[in-house]
Lab assay of single mutants.
Amino acid sequence: DHDVVPEDKFQETLHLKEKEGCPQAFHALLSWLLTQDSTAILDFWRVLFKDYNLERYGRLQPILDSFPKDVDLSQPRKGRKPPAVPKALVPPPRLPTKRKASEEARAAAPAALTPRGTASPGSQLKAKPPKKPESSAEQQRLPLGNGIQTMSASVQRAVAMSSGDVPGARGAVEGILIQQVFESGGSKKCIQVGGEFYTPSKFEDSGSGKNKARSSSGPKPLVRAKGAQGAAPGGGEARLGQQGSVPAPLALPSDPQLHQKNEDECAVCRDGGELICCDGCPRAFHLACLSPPLREIPSGTWRCSSCLQATVQEVQPRAEEPRPQEPPVETPLPPGLRSAGEEVRGPPGEPLAGMDTTLVYKHLPAPPSAAPLPGLDSSALHPLLCVGPEGQQNLAPGARCGVCGDGTDVLRCTHCAAAFHWRCHFPAGTSRPGTGLRCRSCSGDVTPAPVEGVLAPSPARLAPGPAKDDTASHEPALHRDDLESLLSEHTFDGILQWAIQSMARPAAPFPS
């Protein structure tokens, strides 16, 4: 592969990997390779389809078979030569091979799209000592099968071997295949498990690692696999990028399955594409389908809103127990993405979901129960707010008499603000006073009005108090039968009158 990737590009890729991570280095090298001529790309395919690569990765054979028959990708048995050289000459001794072996032994695996480039050397060096003999053996194999790289107009793939297949390693990572398949204008990513390549439709969760975000852009890794992070704060999961590491605690105790298979379609829109997988259930989501939507993949363990709600429900009964003089119970939860139609709101002032922060849900004790107040519409209280300059209440639009249902020339009671006709409430011909108009209920007259088809109010509507207090003497005590009587009149003013009279009014101040 030294004929494909020059030394300066190799060093530039290593520097970019240390600065921005393996995914960015892979993407940059792939983009550079696509700008080369067809001879360089053909050399790339020839390096990929060597015999030892085909033996190690069985899924490469179907890719090789898909090439046109007129494309010669065979390799000479006596060494490598550029395709432009007409004579089959043995190339001179390859010093770059020693360079590659020494550099890969030092860096474990470079971040390139060629056999030198995919593992994360920093994480491997940190986690190597417990498994040094086995990992050293794996390093000797890295130059042979560490990076199976493929690129063409139909298929483009980048393979990364790992030393996680050490025997006896619980939940060992089998390997990473960062794979971009450009077929019919689409893009897919796969993962390699035990020599087999699994596409998103049959993606397997190998051991402790999972394909957290099938994305090839942005600074985030394709698999949430930063070796420096180790395990999740809650004892979460091992990262795919942690090559040759000792077994780590796999999943939280509440995880239903340690080796679950995540779905390959969004649980909201039932469509495929780039998904984020939940650590607590097999569901996966688009970032845009979450509520609120996320802009980037959160670091650490992530769970959907259903799993978060289940966790909150487990903690909430203990938080609601009476604990005198104790601060509110704080339950730190990872930043969760909410699927459509589901929402768990945190306290005000918290950062938005999706940031690399930890939301704190506070379970406050329930407030003391209070008697429910009568629910009145805002339009129902409008007549009470229509007060004239002299303190006389004006008529609201649409006000109707509670007896006849007519809204023409209605009066407004100064005591309960109900609309009424003087002739309907006082049919006996009582003279109307000039000021202080009161309806039949507030004036103490319980004589029913002779209106055909309208039920008369119940005599129990009024329960006047002592006459010594004029204001308190007109406080009506309405009961269920009074409400039914008012409802039978089918008037809004009657219902409003009952609601206003049912509310307690402050006692009249004593004259000074």
Rank of each mutant, 00 (worst) to 15 (best):
G241N: 10
G244T: 07
V246F: 15
P247T: 10
A248Q: 10
S254Q: 13
D255N: 07
D255V: 12
P256C: 11
L258Y: 15
L258F: 12
L258G: 11
H259W: 10
C266H: 04
A267W: 13
V268H: 15
C269R: 04
R270I: 14
G273Y: 09
C277A: 07
C277T: 09
C278K: 12
G280D: 14
G280P: 07
P282G: 05
S291K: 04
P293L: 11
L294H: 01
R295I: 12
E296R: 09
I297N: 08
P298T: 09
P298W: 13
S299C: 09
S299G: 11
W302A: 14
C304T: 14
S306Q: 12
Q309R: 08
Q309S: 12
T311R: 11
V312T: 13
Q313T: 10
E326W: 13
P328M: 14
V329E: 11
P335E: 09
L337A: 06
L337S: 14
R338V: 13
A340K: 10
A340I: 08
E342F: 15
E343Y: 06
V344W: 15
P347N: 15
G349K: 04
G349W: 14
A353C: 05
L364G: 07
P367W: 15
P367I: 07
S369C: 11
A370L: 13
A371H: 15
P372F: 10
P374I: 14
P374Y: 15
G375F: 13
G375R: 08
H382F: 15
C386D: 05
V387D: 06
G388V: 09
E390Q: 10
G391N: 06
P397Y: 10
P397A: 07
R400N: 12
G402C: 12
G402R: 10
V403D: 08
V403T: 07
C404H: 02
C404N: 04
G405P: 03
V410E: 12
L411H: 12
C413F: 04
C416N: 01
A418N: 05
W422N: 14
G429V: 10
T430R: 10
T430M: 15
S431N: 05
R432S: 10
R438P: 08
C439R: 02
C439S: 01
C442F: 02
S443D: 04
S443C: 05
S443Q: 02
G444A: 06
D445C: 09
V446P: 09
V446I: 09
T447F: 14
P448T: 06
A449S: 14
V451W: 12
G453C: 05
V454C: 06
L455Q: 07
L455T: 12
P457H: 05
P457L: 12
R461T: 02
R461K: 06
L462I: 13
A463W: 15
P464R: 06
G465R: 08
P466H: 12
P466A: 13
A467H: 13
K468W: 06
D470K: 04
H474G: 07
H479L: 09
D482G: 04
L483W: 04
L486C: 03
L486V: 03
T491G: 05
D493S: 01
D493R: 00
G494M: 06
I495R: 02
L496F: 03
A499Y: 04
I500R: 03
I500E: 00
Q501G: 11
S502A: 11
M503L: 10
R505T: 06
P506Q: 03
A508C: 14
P509V: 12
P511N: 00
